[in-house]
């Protein structure tokens, strides 16, 4: 009798434990990107490419992004970080950033008295596959410099 009661109690304990769904998530700090002193200009979703990006900029880049004519500023620095999208764990109906796909740096420099030039650099992230096409430089410069800052309080 005592034996069967103890079996019953341990079975109950096991059942309760199995109902405890607080098995802990594995945090992924390698998905974080530290943009240093640069601030948020805006996020960009691309479902055709399955990516999600964050465009950051320094003060001069932000100034351009708030300017109605988007006039480029000498000394503006931009960083576009792109992640592969993945479904959010434990919630059907949201995609979020996963592995870092690429990091693009863009600097606006004064080439001579009248002309501004763009220094563009592409870095592949962990999510970038060797066979993937590198984005076309001129298109990316245009995309990055033509973004207005997202409006938020």
């Amino acid at each position: 009798m005592k034996f069967s009661i103890s079996i019953y109690i341990s079975a109950l304990a096991l059942l309760l434990l199995s109902c405890d769904d607080r098995n802990t998530a594995t945090l992924a700090p390698d998905y974080l990107y530290d943009a240093g002193n640069q601030a948020v200009i805006k996020s960009i979703i691309n479902n055709k490419k399955g990516t999600i990006s964050m465009l950051y900029g320094n003060d001069l880049a932000l100034q351009t992004a708030h300017d109605s004519l988007l006039k480029p500023n000498d000394g503006a620095h931009y960083t576009m970080v792109t992640w592969k999208q993945k479904p959010m764990p434990h919630w059907y109906g949201t995609n979020m950033n996963g592995e870092i796909y690429s990091i693009e740096h863009l600097k606006v420099v004064q080439r001579n008295d009248t002309q501004l030039a763009f220094d563009y650099e592409f870095q592949a992230g962990k999510g970038y596959q060797p066979g993937d096409d590198q984005p076309e430089k001129e298109q990316r410069i245009k995309l990055i410099t033509s973004q207005r800052a997202a409006v938020f309080p």
């Binding site: 998905y31 974080l32 990107y33 530290d34 943009a35 601030a39 948020v40 996020s43 979703i45 479902n47 999600i52 990006s53 964050m54 992640w83 999208q85 959010m88 109906g93 949201t94 995609n95 979020m96 950033n97 309080p153």
Partner: peptide, 24 residues
Amino acid sequence: YSADYKNWKIISITDKFDGGSMRV
């Protein structure tokens, strides 16, 4: 409300299906 967060780091970026919104 406090606007301090603008100096914090981004921890994720999302695309939420219901209601059509994107989040930082």
